[in-house]
Design a protein around this nucleic acid. Structure first.
Length: 290
DNA sequence: CACTTGACCTGTCCGC
DNA sequence: TGCGGACAGGTCAAGT
């Protein structure tokens, strides 16, 4: 899905669009995408005003004046697209993946009193929208075990080293993808960060020095920040709150660049499989471990 | 407990 | 063109 920079880009967009709007109606087409009952919606959501939009890990949180929150996970192909009253069918001719809404991938539609709407679209139906009491959100299983936010000032190279030790016998790519180690890294930014740190993804965590992990820290932070600056990466389905693509993918050094030259050394980028995921490396800059 | 693999869905791409 | 298989940005449950 959308990894941290993509979800953060959606958060930034929605936080400019939603606060102050009052929810009039919520429609959904299946319990997998929206497990709450219509009674829950009527009681806790309809009539409530959006207070703020937050993010933790790859999860979006829309806090409501009712003291309940909409908790949203986009997983692989989820989208949250806002349309103003006159704009449901307008589409976005430039740089857009979505046209008239709702479409066949729309599973939840949130209508506001002023006529605007927020559409939750998801081709693969892995994502979901759920309602929780705001005070209960930190007690959701996922949030209880999820690791630190990489962009918080309290996240340091030493803390990354410490968090990684819980996966010391697995390879570094699997460890980075493990949300209980740190929050928000997915397949794109794991590959990009490891290329930057000149570390092969199959390297065992226990064989990485503190210096190597500090270098990886620097690369992960800069790659995440750059991507947020570019509005995230659109490989296929991802769009921001206005339905538009992000441009980070054109700055990627290895992700989806197999067959092309490494920008550092000119060696042809290869695609392999590590931790059960498609994995991109420069075989010269990131030599395979023994 | 640590670690790996398959499953969840739908769509697309690639080889025959 | 059609068809089967592999694969796709994430996370769980179940297996070793």
């Amino acid at each position: 899905m959308p990894e941290l920079p993509e979800v953060e880009t959606v958060r930034i967009g929605l936080s400019k669009l939603l606060p102050g709007r009052v929810i009039k109606q919520v429609e959904f087409d299946n319990p997998k995408s929206f497990p709450n009952t219509p009674e829950d919606v009527a009681q806790f959501v309809v009539g409530a005003k959006v207070v703020l939009v937050a993010r933790r890990a790859k999860v979006l949180l829309i806090e409501l004046s009712s003291k309940y929150s909409l908790v949203i996970h986009l997983k692989m192909t989820g989208q949250l697209v806002f349309r103003g009253e006159q704009n449901f069918g307008a589409g976005h001719p430039n740089n857009s993946l979505v046209g008239k809404l709702p479409d066949k991938t729309t599973h939840v539609t949130i209508s506001f009193e002023d006529g605007s709407k927020l559409f939750f679209n998801d081709q693969r139906k892995f994502g979901w929208v759920r309602v929780f009491p705001t005070t209960e959100v930190p007690n959701i299983d996922f949030f209880k075990k999820v690791g630190p936010e990489p962009l918080d000032s309290s996240f340091t190279p030493d803390l990354l080293y410490e968090r990684l030790q819980r996966r010391k016998n697995s390879n570094i790519k699997a460890a980075l993808l493990d949300q209980s180690v740190l929050a928000g890294i997915g397949n794109i930014y794991a590959d990009e960060g490891l290329w930057g740190a000149k570390t092969h993804p199959a390297t065992l965590v226990k064989n990485l020095s503190k210096t190597q992990i500090a270098a990886l820290y620097d690369e992960l932070i800069s790659v995440l920040k750059l991507s947020i600056e570019k509005g995230g990466s659109t490989d296929r389905n991802y769009v921001n709150a206005e339905g538009k693509k992000g441009s980070y993918i054109s700055f990627a050094q290895v992700f989806r660049r197999e067959g092309k030259p490494c920008s550092r050394c000119g060696t042809v980028i290869e695609k392999t499989r590590v931790a059960g995921r498609g994995t991109h490396i420069c075989p010269y800059c990131q030599p395979a471990p023994n």
